[in-house]
Nucleic acid binder design. Structure first.
Lengths: 221, 221
DNA sequence: ACTCACGTCAAACAAGGGTTTCAAACGCCC
DNA sequence: GGGCGTTTGAAACCCTTGTTTGACGTGAGT
């Protein structure tokens, strides 16, 4: 098996000699999984794209599922950290009770900004979104039970909207997340066809504002 | 194994005696696909659940993908038909220009009503939602290019909101659909954990009202 | 120079997948 | 009842998959 005390520091700035092929596998896998789906990518596809040997995945990660899970773990952790940071900043700026709009910004901004075509983490966002619908059982288990991250946002919204019953808040948060998770390449394509090219997904700043406007109105209804 | 050769529900318009096993395969496949995902269900799983021979799928449908596509075709057609009907009724009731709320109701009501635990088509809705994220290439092709159904709703919304630029309408329709497509079993589970059991997905009427309230406010923002 | 841990490589393995085959059984019509 | 197209049954086929194996190369430590 591999080592148990895994250095879970970021792989972007890694000690290049020991983890060269491991990093190559990681990035190639993330890319292929995000583009074609988890089940439609074989370990041979990944190792071919990364230019490494077939056995590398099992040697460095243990199994294909473990590799998947490690990508999932790292990317969701990064996303959650950035979201929590923004929520914290918003709380500080508003005396501990940020308004709905600021909470929604903390929820939407990180994934949206990262979806910018020029951003290095664009593919990571697509990977995370995909994990939600086609993830393995262990990933779904995490998504289902680890709600501590989301609870912060729910609590902030409950504090910002004291006139609404919490049940209503939970549902509206569910709706807002649905809006967000629908931002997949395939859905953009459909929208592009429907609008005859009017909609431009590449303008993420405009999209972010649109999403926040829509969701804020929904919360304040 | 179980009483599988029982479903005498006719298959829309089939001579019922010859298609007994075909119908059994159809319903078993829809159920398993909706519950466990397309790639996680083998033809052996389906034929075992249906209590028919392994070769039945290839004989009656040609291939596993063709079976998938036929279920997809039929269920989306049914859903689109019902939606179009409701939109038509709403248009008649409002002199050809139904308000936003009526349009959203036509969009949300059919899939939501069918999601009622007691409804026979509950599983079909989950199947359709799944097709959007894990469908085969041919299914995605249909979803991407066949936008005639959705165009009716977009046009109705544009007529109902003349002060908004069409681009804005398209995006908000995209958001509304995201809200809807997020209604998967797994997401309900997560919401259930988060809210500590406060939210009840079984109350589809309340959920429908909540969704329409939220989306209407977003459109009128 | 020897050792030994570590990474890499080609090859093979075992399992599961969808599909095909062909004989047997069935249903219907003359 | 006999013929004939259709459906079912059990078995096999063949390909892809993830994983494992054991040899080989490398490089630092003594």
């Amino acid at each position: 098996m591999t080592d148990a005390a895994e250095p879970l520091e970021d792989l972007a700035a890694d000690p290049e000699r020991e983890a060269a092929t491991k990093a190559a596998v990681f990035t190639a896998a993330e890319r292929l999984f995000a583009l074609h789906g988890f089940q439609n990518v074989s370990v041979r596809d990944i190792t071919a794209e990364a230019g490494v040997n077939l056995a590398s995945i099992n040697y460095h990660f243990g199994s294909k599922d473990a590799l998947l899970f490690e990508i999932f773990r790292r990317r969701t952790a990064e996303l959650n950290r950035e979201r929590a940071r923004m929520l914290h900043v918003a709380a500080d700026a508003h005396g501990g009770r940020p308004p709905v709009r600021a909470i929604l910004a903390a929820l939407f901004e990180p994934p949206l900004r990262w979806s910018n075509p020029a951003h290095e983490r664009r593919i990571s966002v697509q990977f995370i979104i995909r994990a939600r619908s086609e993830g393995t059982e262990s990933m779904k288990e995490v998504l289902r039970t680890d709600v501590s991250h989301l609870r912060r946002f729910a609590d902030a919204l409950i504090a910002a909207l004291p006139q609404l019953p919490p049940e209503e808040i939970y549902w509206r948060l569910h709706f807002a997340l649905g809006m967000l998770h629908n931002n997949r390449f395939a859905e953009f394509d459909r929208l592009h066809v429907l609008s005859d090219g009017v909609t431009r997904e590449s303008d993420v700043e405009a999209l972010l504002k649109r999403m926040i406007d829509f969701a804020e109105a929904g919360f304040l209804a």
